[in-house]
Design a protein around this nucleic acid. Structure first.
Lengths: 156, 156
DNA sequence: GTTGAAAGTGTAGGCTA
DNA sequence: TAGCCTACACTTTCAAC
């Protein structure tokens, strides 16, 4: 994976859209002193380069009834089972994030559940039943203090 | 935190915008059989209700040169230090996520660094120097297999 | 990079249940 | 009163320059 070459205007575009994906391009354009169409073309270029992966509306899980967030460490018996395990986890909509990590556990998941019963069901019926899953540890996220994206200003 | 009352059209709006925050409202409108203005009004209402927290452009950290992602567990000496610890962590731009969790560690962070040296610097100079931080454990994220939002279809 | 035309957004004022 | 509509000025998108 090669590092992309990004100039000051690209950074300004990313910096704004990372905070607000629906920010008007014309507003960014006025700040940069170029036309809205130019911003549009740069965003398209950053998208084609793979720098931009997409955009997302951020919703409050609690407002939608998802009262439980948990991080789950998983120990898988052997590397040959990793791919199958990821594919199975991807089919579980409650699992929103999945990392391969170093340490006692091979994988770390982030899951959102409606309540503790729902979490228990996901853990016992969906995760512990996957072939090769030896052991799990559940860390309940009591509060998510903050969540944001990397700071593009860094790259200046 | 009360669960918001969301109807089928609201769910359809969220379902689309969660995947693509810049999806044209008119496209959603045609699918729902109402006007673009009505979609706009519903999005505004969901925003005011706190269901929508914002929107974000999703970028590829690797393309921007951030080659190392790690999850860091932190043990803090006593609860009176929690607030100060969060505030200090918020000042570190490399820390993109912060949870209070159950288990051996009180907090779990997600950090993005340019390389291992950078991670070491953040860990030793920025995190271990915070008052009350007793112990940390770093889980390097070798691969982030997937990352997405909760599935609104659930709420049907 | 620019311009300009077609499509989409956001807001105001009004209609209907 | 809530939720939809149309109207219209501004913004986005895309092709041609």
């Amino acid at each position: 994976m090669s590092k992309a070459s990004i100039d000051a205007i690209d950074r300004k575009i990313l910096q704004h859209l990372i905070r607000n994906a629906r920010m008007p391009f014309l507003e960014i354009a006025r700040e940069c002193g170029i036309s809205g169409a130019a911003i549009h073309q740069r965003v398209k270029k950053l998208d084609e380069m793979g720098v931009i992966l997409g955009s997302r509306l951020e919703v409050d899980p609690k407002k939608l009834g998802f009262d439980v967030c948990a991080l789950i460490g998983i120990r898988v018996s052997d590397p040959s089972r990793y791919e199958n395990t990821v594919e199975t986890l991807k089919q579980i909509p409650e699992v929103v994030e999945c990392h391969f990590i170093t340490g006692e556990y091979n994988m770390m998941l982030k899951v959102y559940c409606l309540n503790n019963e729902h979490l228990m069901q996901i853990l016992f019926e969906k995760i512990l039943t996957i072939d090769g899953v030896l052991k799990t540890e559940t860390f309940i996220s009591l509060v998510q203090s903050f969540s944001r994206q990397i700071d593009v200003k860094y790259l200046e």
